[in-house]
Design a binder for these strands. Structure first.
Lengths: 187, 187
DNA sequence: CCGTCATTTCAGGAATTTCTGAAATGGCGA
DNA sequence: TCGCCATTTCAGAAATTCCTGAAATGACGG
């Protein structure tokens, strides 16, 4: 692997983190490399930069495409495929959230729904179902919230984040203020 | 593995999902079993329920304890260790979020900070650093938000979730309303 | 101190995942 | 059609992770 020191450290870190993120070392490294590279790279350039086999790079790119984390570009008069990551980190975040939800949450949600439809045959099963219902309820709240906020434009999303927990204060304020501005009929 | 069908399906699902969640099959199964069980279980009971080795259960429980996902209980006149999961699914969610952040986010944040301190020696390194700064900025926003909302009592957190994207409307309303209720001095 | 029981550790085997080189596929121009 | 080049596929090797049984550790009562 021959890369500028800064880039190399970054790439190696993503490789190491790979397993924790549910991807393998090579995939992590390819992503990191594309992310910091000034322009699109082709497979051969990735091979040289990372020192892994051509086929490994091919598989890694395929996986990154399945995650929608990588863009395929074409350069005029060059029939090789070139790859980049989206420039916008917020878009990357959205993609990541969407894909992780699809892989890590949705299957469980659907299993839970299925199991909750069945009839419990014993006291233990009844209890188990109650627990599953709790889990299902929580996941559904979270995903509903997610489906909701993911539609916000980035600017509003950022504003929301910046506000953080202060929104609740706003919520409390609302109740009072609404009373002031629009006194209740029955008041 | 001898378990009521409903429980068995649930346990098997968690086992299969294990790899996607960054834990192994046995750990996933143990967690699922404890989660739906009506009371605490000891290691031997888990061995029987799941049909895995005693040592495997021991390691699995150790890992779950490292994740703070499991509680150690003691039963009078019984010197074996008994285990449960917390009852409150919101607490489980908080723990999960905290631990995943610790393992999956914090290390990257710290590497990014370190790399951003260094001096770029080339144009490519300068560009790489700019990209890292973008990533760092985003992660920091997210973690700041998280640190903020995680302190909310569950009830408020739930209210916040229920509100979802509607908060932004509230935000817009605020600007108007503040004008009405507390007219600016400089008006 | 022992003996007993519960738990942990750990070496090595089993299973799974990752990676590679070689062969296959596919597009394109001559 | 053929040759060329880029990419993909895939069988098996390499690496890693997971799991087990056996031995070690530790706690407790006698």
């Amino acid at each position: 692997m021959k890369l500028p020191p800064l880039v190399q450290s970054f790439v190696l870190h993503f490789g190491e983190m790979g397993s924790r993120w549910g991807i393998n070392r090579t995939v992590g490294q390819i992503y990191a490399l594309l992310y910091v590279s000034p322009g699109p790279l082709n497979a051969e350039q990735i091979v040289e930069a990372l020192g892994v086999s051509r086929s490994n790079v091919s598989m890694g790119l395929k996986e990154l495409q399945a995650w929608n984390l990588v863009l395929l570009k074409h350069i005029p008069d060059d029939r090789r495929d070139y790859f980049t990551t989206p420039d916008d980190v917020w878009l990357i975040l959205r993609t990541l959230a969407e894909e992780r939800k699809k892989r890590e949450v949705d299957p469980t949600l659907s299993v839970l729904r299925e199991l909750l439809m069945q009839t419990a045959g014993s006291e233990d099963e009844r209890h188990a179902q109650a627990r599953m219902a709790e889990m299902h309820g929580l996941i559904e709240r979270l995903t509903t919230w997610y489906e909701d906020v993911k539609r916000l434009e980035t600017e509003r999303l950022a504003a929301l984040l910046a506000l953080g927990a202060k929104v609740t204060r706003l919520l409390e304020a609302k109740d009072k203020v609404v009373g002031l501005v629009r006194p209740r009929k029955g008041g």
